[in-house]
Design a protein around this nucleic acid. Sequence first.
DNA 1: CTGAAAGCGCTAACAA
DNA 2: TTGTTAGCGCTTTCAG
Lengths: 338, 338
Amino acid sequence: MKKEINITEVARKAGVSTATVSRVFNNSGPVKESTRKKIEKIIEETGYRPNILARELADKKTHLIGLIVHDMRGEGIPRSITGVSTVLEENGYNLLIACSNGNINSEIKHFEIFRSKRVEGILFATKEFKKEHRELIKSLPIPVVVMLQDTEKEQISYVTFDNYNFGKESAQKLIDLGHKQFAVVGGPMHSVNSEQRKKGVLDAVSENGIAISPLLIRHGDYSIEEGYIQTNKMLAAGTSFTALIAINDGMAIGAVNCLQDHGIRVPEEVSVLGLDDTVLAKASRLELSGVYYSYSELGKESARLLLKQIQADEFQFDKYIVPYTINLRESVAKRRHV
Amino acid sequence: MKKEINITEVARKAGVSTATVSRVFNNSGPVKESTRKKIEKIIEETGYRPNILARELADKKTHLIGLIVHDMRGEGIPRSITGVSTVLEENGYNLLIACSNGNINSEIKHFEIFRSKRVEGILFATKEFKKEHRELIKSLPIPVVVMLQDTEKEQISYVTFDNYNFGKESAQKLIDLGHKQFAVVGGPMHSVNSEQRKKGVLDAVSENGIAISPLLIRHGDYSIEEGYIQTNKMLAAGTSFTALIAINDGMAIGAVNCLQDHGIRVPEEVSVLGLDDTVLAKASRLELSGVYYSYSELGKESARLLLKQIQADEFQFDKYIVPYTINLRESVAKRRHV
DNA sequence: CTGAAAGCGCTAACAA
DNA sequence: TTGTTAGCGCTTTCAG
């Protein structure tokens, strides 16, 4: 195993001082052309690479950002990470990643490790934002930006999607198409994002003076299977509906499958819309309607917000809401037989 | 912005030397109970966290692993990363990630950066393994493990799937079901993984004395759309087939869609198999057959291999082939009308 | 049981 | 144009 060579070694071989080598490497001062050449030759020959740690220790800048995520399955987070990575690279920062698997102890541990590693800021995505998180983050001497959660009331900087509003606007679109009987398949009730979307939907509905049966509000775990199961239960309930909104596209697919298995035509009899628009939407035969929001953009903005705070050397509360687009496709139609 | 406090500061406040504080923090030497208590109190009060950089500089161990990937869309790589992350965490290592977007200059740059950051080893996933990669890696003073590529002939350690064999075995299964007329939708021809799978399929076919028309060997970019388009072209060619193998499940879905649009029943008239088994396979109405291999396992094994080399302090060539399972489901049937 | 001091590799201020 | 030196924060002998 070859060893890395250090600056002293290079200096010795070149018969100069370390300061001169440093000047050559960083172009940080005048060096006579001949000595520069000589040193460059040695660097070339030895394959010398400065030990950045030493430099970082000296000027107390690591150019390191820590990212803690709870899960990397699903297409959202990886795309966000790509966005983060892009912006960091443009700014000469590196990315330290930890995956907590939703375990709060693991999250806390990684905040600690990252702090010890002297990252200059932390990006944090968790399933559920708890009091412990708030306290931990408030006690940190470096800025933190929360991703995919609304931490407005904790006054911690965040970047997220406009869950409430696109939920509301989506429902309004269906209402505008004449729909009056709704069914909703929400996500897990402890998920803030899912609940916000659901609230948007329900608010739109009630603001239009439409009632919705509690039997037609169900919850699933985002999977295709659950979409199927919950839709099945709603059909069994016997209360009819002409529009179904699922909190994500996986469950929307399950819903379509279930409806079709019951001989119910989509969209002629029931329109289906997912509040989400991932690769899954494209896999289904029927072109599924959905709401698109860019995870990559979310990652980029999160990184930008964080770098801004690092550069400003202060943590002002800040936030960014990523825009969305509602894509109505095959699975949605005007209500018939009005 | 609060500042991080250092060991000297703690020592001063406690009225002891830095050596003693260090001993307390690391439990690395005898300390009188009363002084220990005193120091622990100060640590608690000040929230002191040692600067790991300094420690790392001192003992030349960063406990850092670098990971360079070309792309994080798709479900494979993120799952691999999770696997890597799990193993590294168990072993007290941290993960530095860079996304190259398949750009070779970016890849090289990150090898450089990681080396300067004194990572102890590098995991590398790229689309196409080039001569430049080989040379760069051979010149590095730290071990590298290549993921998702067979770098046997370059004698660089790697972890990958058994592409050739599962391609071959899958085709054999269909042959055993009586199929004699095959169609194949391969991936991009420059993709080694895809070509290996294809070769496996073709070898199985020819070893069984079956001929396959060149018109029924096509290539697509892995997307559902391309699966559709290429299948369409094969149907247009007029040569009939009873079994279609797509190099991944996305294209298999496209193929199924296309066949059904032509009124061809799956699997009654044509069996369809994807050499891949992701979330997409589950999204299709028809239960798609596929080959499953664990990306998470791939990540874990890659990390283990790398750590082993780091600990052994030598780069012996090593490799690991992740096992697979062939899952025949609804989309595959015995050949009828034999 | 505790402290003084050297050293990890590099940068930057100050001299020469 | 170049070298000397101090110092970044920590660990680790070596003395006491």
